[in-house]
Design a protein around this nucleic acid. Structure first.
Lengths: 342, 342
DNA sequence: TTGTAGGCGTTATCAT
DNA sequence: ATGATAACGCCTACAA
């Protein structure tokens, strides 16, 4: 005979379906004694509830909000595309996702947006935002309202979010550093570090990880201070030009976060791309192209598809009170070379 | 109002549920004219069938067979563990998986096992085996019997399997080669290539990919012929000893496939691990340990968890006649360094 | 406190 | 060729 159902439990325990359902869902109105009878029947038969049947019956809907920055970066665009692709498929699972965009680098807007989210309209929230006390408070409010909250890409470690979907930035920086050092085996020289903004905690952590590894293992390489282009292509070009001018012994370039497009274009202008080992983060059309041309040596990234699918899975599990499969939800720090480009 | 259901279609088309169901499932006994009416109602309302309700009603079961080699390699063990973990979860989705073990390197047994699989007891088959004409025939038989077939890790490209779950071995070899060349930047010398057996097509392809990259980009490195230890630790130790003896200018070691345990132990015995850049395939307890100790420079691998989940998802999709999400099912060639070890 | 009956969206077995 | 009607496993009024 097949898997036991509520009917089996009902007859085994000598009660009605409704009563079984009540103890199954922890609803009141059942004597302790009856509860025990049902519970023991459940144990005895090894019952495990059919979630899809349950969802069908209760017309369960999973409505998730994804709060994402709308910046100039292409990375968030990729994230959104992956999200759309994922939700197309998961519409079949009664999952609907709404993306709430907030201007990048505007903590107030993030908070305001988070505060518009209520438990009447949503069943879970995924947030990609920089950490501020106000954001933490907003997360707390959401949790208090009973909503599962996951952080995406960039964690809010001191908030009471349920889960973080993303990678350890320090480890990502260390990975970049290790590759840089290895690829520059035996060389002495300087490493230029650029980014568009060093405000985000992730950037700081990557830089920290990068520096740690270089200090530990590659003493012959000197890491220059981080230079910020502030999303300004002109400024990036100027930085590249003057840095290469001032430091003729630059052997490596590390692009810490966003700003890859401007960096790559600037380096092409110098005509000296091949003189450096260049490592960047995040796979975008620009970085992919540069990797294929042997301009970049490596890209450190995370799979945006996996990222959004994981966020959705975790939100669903949390809003069902289920636990997540750690191994499936662990996001990898991916090392992409020309030869293993997906 | 919510998503349209079969009821909506029925009333829109002015027919009964049964008729709607017939055209939905392509069953006979409906006049062409009626079919058209129903079809147009379906289009008009934008109906999309609720798969979980359908599965509930038809008590759908997904019974999949995984045909795996039982060898001395730890890799298959990891695969099985991942499979167990995955099926624990997917039991909820009416999925059951049975593992059929066959002695490694025994094509006859594989065929015999495949021939025991019939469509009465299974709804799909995943196969990890070396390619022989007999295996291809067996796959053909399974397909003819109406069973979806996916190949796992090692493809059977000339069979009519539905899908291959794994990575391109040539690209994996190229990735290993690129890393080896980069890590040996500026050095001249020889590279030792070892494995336990060169029989498998994957091994040959990796070697091919490795050689291609080395020839294209790293002409100063000479790649020695592949040495096979045939799952014999003693033999591996002898290979390592004599090779290092004969070729004092060995700078890199590439472990093509299995046999990592013996290789690592042999190299430890020489006490000269640090003198070489060693790159291996597949993450196992041994290779992980060696990577953490800075003995291995890198591991090229694929995520076994992803592998088995993908196989199951694809089998399910195929046996429902659905298409797969390419992006989700693409298995990555992973580059693991000490700093991004999961 | 407990039970009955109907419904969730789909399929399948009967009749008609 | 078509239509009632009853499942599937679970949830939820409403009644007792």
């Amino acid at each position: 005979m097949g898997k036991p159902t509520v009917h089996d439990i009902a007859s085994e325990a000598g009660v009605s379906l409704a009563t079984v359902d009540r103890v199954l869902n922890g609803r009141p109105g059942v004597r302790q004694k009856t509860q025990d009878r049902v519970q023991s029947a459940i144990m005895r038969l090894g019952y495990v509830r059919d979630l899809s049947a349950a969802n069908l019956a209760r017309q369960r809907q999973y409505r998730f909000a994804f709060v994402l920055p709308e910046g100039p970066g292409q990375f968030v665009g990729l994230l959104q595309a992956a999200l759309r692709e994922a939700t197309d498929v998961q519409r079949a699972d009664r999952i609907s996702v709404r993306v709430l965009q907030v201007p990048a680098h505007d903590p107030h807007q993030v908070v305001r947006t988070l505060n518009t989210i209520d438990a009447k309209h949503y069943d879970g929230v995924a947030i990609m935002a920089q950490e501020t006390p106000q954001v933490r408070d907003a997360v707390h409010r959401l949790k208090t309202a009973g909503l599962p909250v996951v952080t995406l890409i960039s964690d809010l470690p001191n908030s009471d979010r349920d889960h973080f979907v993303g990678v350890n930035s320090i480890a990502a920086g260390r990975t970049a550093g290790l590759l840089m050092g290895r690829f520059l085996r035996g060389l002495t020289g300087k490493i230029l570090v650029v980014t568009s903004s060093l405000l985000a905690r992730d950037s700081l952590e990557r830089r920290f990880g990068f520096d740690s590894v270089m200090a530990e293992k590659f003493g012959s390489l000197e890491i220059l201070p981080t230079l910020e282009a502030h999303d300004d292509a002109e400024r990036m070009a100027a930085i590249v030009r003057s840095s290469l001018d001032v430091h003729p012994d630059i052997v490596g370039i590390y692009s810490l976060a966003s700003g890859n497009k401007a960096l790559i274009e600037s380096l092409r202008l110098t005509g000296r791309f091949q003189d450096f080992v260049v490592i960047a983060h995040e796979l975008t059309s620009q970085t992919r192209d540069a990797l294929e041309r042997d301009e970049l040596a490596a890209i450190i990234t995370q799979d945006v598809g996996h990222l959004v699918r994981s966020a959705v899975r975790v939100l669903r599990a949390k809003s069902d009170g289920l636990s997540v499969i750690q191994s499936q939800e662990r996001i990898r720090i991916e090392v992409l070379l020309k030869e293993n480009l997906p």
